[in-house]
Amino acid sequence: MTDEPTRVAVTAEAANLLRTLAAQHGPLMFHQSGGCCDGSAPMCYPVGMFITGLGDVHLATLDVPGIDPIDVFMSVSQFEYWKYTHLTIDVVSGRGAGFSVEGPSGMRFIVRSRMLTTPELEHFDLIPRG
């Protein structure tokens, strides 16, 4: 196990919902929405249902115990605004307006954010290492 900084984390509550969704839908992935559908919500899809490409940045791979790793992506243009930010995927009660697979569960994924710390900024080569 390493203490290397990551750009994305997941709360225990979101991890529980992801395990339930993976049992229903198979391997999952996230794409951080850029304002369409549910504002800027993390949209969860079965792998292969949302196609990423050169216009997307791979932010992280989430290791949620009990299920396959979950890749998290964001569009390149949106990443320019968010590159100094750490995201935590969480879940709250309510139904989102998007196409994310948790919709029927009565829960919806949200993203909580904070600015990256100086060591994280250095790790991601966003400031010179000192």
Rank of each mutant, 00 (worst) to 15 (best):
residue 120 E to L: 07
residue 59 L to R: 01
residue 57 V to P: 02
residue 82 W to L: 11
residue 84 Y to F: 14
residue 86 H to C: 05
residue 2 T to R: 10
residue 21 L to T: 02
residue 70 I to Y: 00
residue 17 L to K: 12
residue 60 A to W: 04
residue 38 D to E: 15
residue 29 M to W: 00
residue 81 Y to Q: 12
residue 74 M to L: 11
residue 82 W to C: 09
residue 117 T to M: 09
residue 103 G to K: 15
residue 99 F to Y: 12
residue 60 A to Y: 00
residue 33 S to L: 14
residue 63 D to E: 15
residue 8 V to I: 10
residue 33 S to C: 14
residue 125 D to P: 01
residue 122 E to I: 13
residue 19 R to S: 02
residue 113 S to P: 00
residue 64 V to Q: 03
residue 80 E to K: 15
residue 40 S to R: 10
residue 102 E to N: 08
residue 22 A to I: 00
residue 32 Q to D: 08
residue 48 G to E: 05
residue 113 S to T: 11
residue 70 I to E: 04
residue 14 A to Y: 06
residue 78 Q to D: 12
residue 100 S to E: 15
residue 99 F to I: 03
residue 23 A to D: 15
residue 27 P to F: 00
residue 6 T to C: 07
residue 30 F to L: 07
residue 46 P to I: 01
residue 16 N to W: 04
residue 69 P to S: 05
residue 25 H to Q: 11
residue 6 T to D: 07
residue 5 P to A: 10
residue 96 G to M: 05
residue 94 G to I: 03
residue 123 H to Q: 12
residue 117 T to L: 08
residue 32 Q to M: 15
residue 13 E to G: 02
residue 34 G to V: 09
residue 34 G to W: 11
residue 48 G to Y: 02
residue 87 L to E: 01
residue 19 R to F: 10
residue 23 A to Q: 11
residue 3 D to F: 13
residue 39 G to Y: 09
residue 92 V to I: 09
residue 107 M to G: 01
residue 22 A to G: 06
residue 39 G to L: 14
residue 44 C to A: 09
residue 61 T to G: 05
residue 24 Q to H: 07
residue 73 F to L: 08
residue 110 I to Q: 03
residue 19 R to W: 04
residue 89 I to V: 07
residue 17 L to A: 12
residue 70 I to W: 02
residue 36 C to L: 10
residue 22 A to M: 05
residue 103 G to A: 14
residue 60 A to N: 13
residue 82 W to P: 01
residue 50 F to T: 02
residue 50 F to P: 03
residue 48 G to Q: 08
residue 120 E to Q: 10
residue 80 E to W: 09
residue 16 N to R: 09
residue 65 P to E: 11
residue 27 P to L: 00
residue 3 D to V: 13
residue 106 G to R: 07
residue 22 A to R: 02
residue 35 G to M: 11
residue 105 S to H: 04
